[in-house]
Structure formats: C-alpha cells, structure tokens
Amino acid sequence: MDPIQSISSLQMDVLKEASNIGAGNAATALSKLLNKKIEMNVPVVRILSFAEIMELIGGSEQMVASVFLQIEGDFTGYMFYILPVDEADSFVRQLTGMSNFSLKNENVPEIVLSAFQEMGNILTGSYLAAVSDFTQLQLKPSVPAVGIDMFGAIISYGLLEISQISDFAIVIDTEVSDSNAARDGDLIKGHFFLLPDPDSFTKVFESLGVYE
C-alpha cells in the first residue's frame, strides 16, 4: 500500500492540531510585525496527488513570492510560506514603508528581498517553534531561501523527496490573512504549506502517544 495513503484519520487530526498551534503562533508574530489584526483559517490537511498540488492557490503558472525551507531533525519535511506576488509587495510596503518597487521586476532592491526573507524567517520560525514545543520533538529548519517565480516551479521542490516513494503527498495548508484587507484594499493572504516526510511520522505519533 502507498505509505501516504495508509495514514489514519486520527493521525491526520494530530497533524492538523500541531499545525493549528504552529500557524497560530506565526499569526501572532505577523500581527506584531505589522501591528494589525491577523486572521487564520483552521489548517486543512489533505492527501493530494502531485497534479492537484500543482493547481493549489492560482495554479502552476501563477507568479508567487515564497520562502522555502527544509526541516531536519526528529521530524523531516519541507515548509513554504507563499503568497501572490502583488500581496508580497503590499507586505513589504507595510513592513518597510518603501513603495517604489515590485518583486515582479527582475532587479529587486536587495533591501526588499531581505525584508521579505526576514519576514519569512520570523513566520516560519515561530510556526516551527510552536510545533516543536507541542510535539516535544527537535526540529532543525534550514535557513529559508526566497524564490519568486511560478507556483509550480517552486512547490515541486517540496515533492522531490516524497516522489521517490509516492505520487501523493500530505499537504497541510493554513491561510493567514489581514482581517482588514477588504476595507484597506491592501490584501495579504499568505499560505503556509507544510509537506511532512511520511518516514518521520512515526516519531511524531509516538511522541504524542498516538498509535493507530
């Protein structure tokens, strides 16, 4: 049986709860960073085919800004913070007060990229710190890298390791958005995608005492 498909619904719930705590912590960090109220959806945990994953957000051709890191340690996998590039612009504007730039252009000022990377650092770091506390597992995230390109070209990096054993992946998707976005017209709706390595589940479930 495909190792991805054999995960139980109880185990899916455990992953969902761990992500809920992680994303909640990241949303709080984001709220402090922007001094704004931030809303978060309950994480959605799904088993998706690679083809379905490529069509998330706005499809594989959608231009996005992303922060990507690899998780090593007791629990392994990949994590992305991804948002449409216009919204990433809006994010950096609010953070730096700069306005004469776009991440869409080829020669983005270094300070803009650094601001975006630092924001990604803070958000993914707070997400994973909370997951680590909850599961009592040691997580060693790599330094996050920034990628601004087509969604498909970026998210496929998270599938490389899993693709050696399956054509499916578990995707934990949490949407975090600025709650006043509709009023301000300055929408920021980012997604955290956590793609856990199925080989490392056993440790998570053991640590939390979930055995079925």
Binding site: F50, A51, M54, G59, S60, E61, D149, M150, F151, G152, A153, I154, S156, Y157, L159, L160, S163, D167
Partner: peptide, 23 residues
C-alpha cells in the same frame, strides 16, 4: 501534461506543460 506525467499530440493541436522548475 501534468507533473510526472506524459501525453502525445497530433497537429493541429499543441501540447503544453506549465511550471517547470527543476523538472
């Protein structure tokens, strides 16, 4: 054509795949 997939095409149709990164 999706990721990790293949297909064929006859004229006048065309064939396309999107979002190639390391693939």
């Amino acid at each position: 054509v999706g990721i990790a997939d293949m297909n064929i095409v006859h004229a006048p149709n065309t064939i396309r795949t999107s979002g190639l990164g390391s693939c």
